[in-house]
Design a protein around this nucleic acid. Structure first.
Lengths: 179, 179
DNA sequence: CTGTAATTTCAGCAATTACTGAAATTACAG
DNA sequence: CTGTAATTTCAGTAATTGCTGAAATTACAG
């Protein structure tokens, strides 16, 4: 592993650990993302200096997030892992999984609590706040769902727009202003 | 603490711990958000059954995230804590802090790595991926920055639009399609 | 100032999470 | 099938993170 790749792998390991993602799993994924060719578990263990079993568990975790593809090479008994070829696909998967695991349960909890009648002024206020949280989260979620619908090609356009993004959103603002 | 509030507090404690946020800190903040009146550290410790010192550390953490306001009540020596009155303000602060702590360092690391010349095909590919990551993260960040500029009033409009949000974004899509 | 209430700090213990190596299981070539 | 390579599981241990109570510090009323 070259120093450049190593530095990136380390950084994403650190970042992962701030996000409830195991540091070593973060490193493994960064390595896969940066690798042009699929890797075996042994290669990953070797590159990062982790035990083979740790890599096995990490890959299992990444599979549960649907972030890696498993493939076989004809005449080779080993399993090869790779990350999607498009970064945008990775981001979309992350958003979707986060929603499934964190947002949806939260919305459903909030809805449940909003069903019951408040028994005091205190609960009335708390419910008000829960309602605000619910509506805000729901809206932001819808927003990201729309964004997720963008395909890679469309995204290229947005990326090229770059600093003009603000203008596009200003137009949106004006549209909204009329409502 | 009523069962309804308790349930919400517990839920956000759990969720927090999936996000690299200490479970007890998450509970403390949920309690503050749901409380109509400011609370003292002692009240929080009492309500949640934590030690006074744990609450002290948790509040310090929340202050470092700029998520709580500290206030004094005349003739009372204790310190009272409260969350912003607007949920949207809380969300904006969270987005801003996350950006400062996680996104900005990541972008700057990636930029640094993209400055150096690739010494092999392997590094060339890795850099390509880093470039894609960088540009995507930068774009999404700009996006959220624009969203953050919305004030509460404007947000109300968006919230009321509700299911029509998709349509608004479709209009945006069409605008982009022309580019 | 002085005394006391409020708050913070921090060393030490508890709980949780991460990682490993050995054993078990699975996969498959021959 | 059989033998072997590959992978997974899991009990035990290591490392990290979280929490507490006691002591130190700070804040302020009188």
């Amino acid at each position: 592993m070259t120093p450049m790749i190593q530095a990136c792998v380390m950084h994403f390991g650190e970042m992962g650990s701030r996000w409830g993602i195991n540091r070593t799993v973060g490193q493994m994924y960064a390595l896969l993302v940066l690798s042009q060719t699929p890797l075996t578990a042994d290669q990953i263990a070797e590159s990062l200096g982790f035990s083979r079993s740790n890599v096995s568990m990490g890959l299992k975790e990444l599979q549960s997030w649907e972030l890696v593809k498993l493939q076989h090479i004809p005449g080779d008994r080993k399993e090869y892992y790779s990350a999607p070829a498009e970064i945008w696909d990775i981001a979309k998967t992350l958003m979707e999984q986060r929603r499934k695991r964190e947002i949806d349960p939260t919305l459903s909890t909030l809805r449940g609590l909003l069903m019951t009648d408040p028994v005091s002024e205190e609960e009335k206020y708390a419910q008000q706040r829960m309602r605000e949280m619910h509506d805000l989260i729901e809206m932001l979620t819808k927003w990201t769902t729309e964004i997720q619908r963008l395909d890679s090609a469309r995204l290229q356009v947005l990326l090229k727009l770059g600093n003009n993004l603000g203008k596009v959103l200003d137009i949106k603002d004006k549209l909204l202003g009329k409502n």
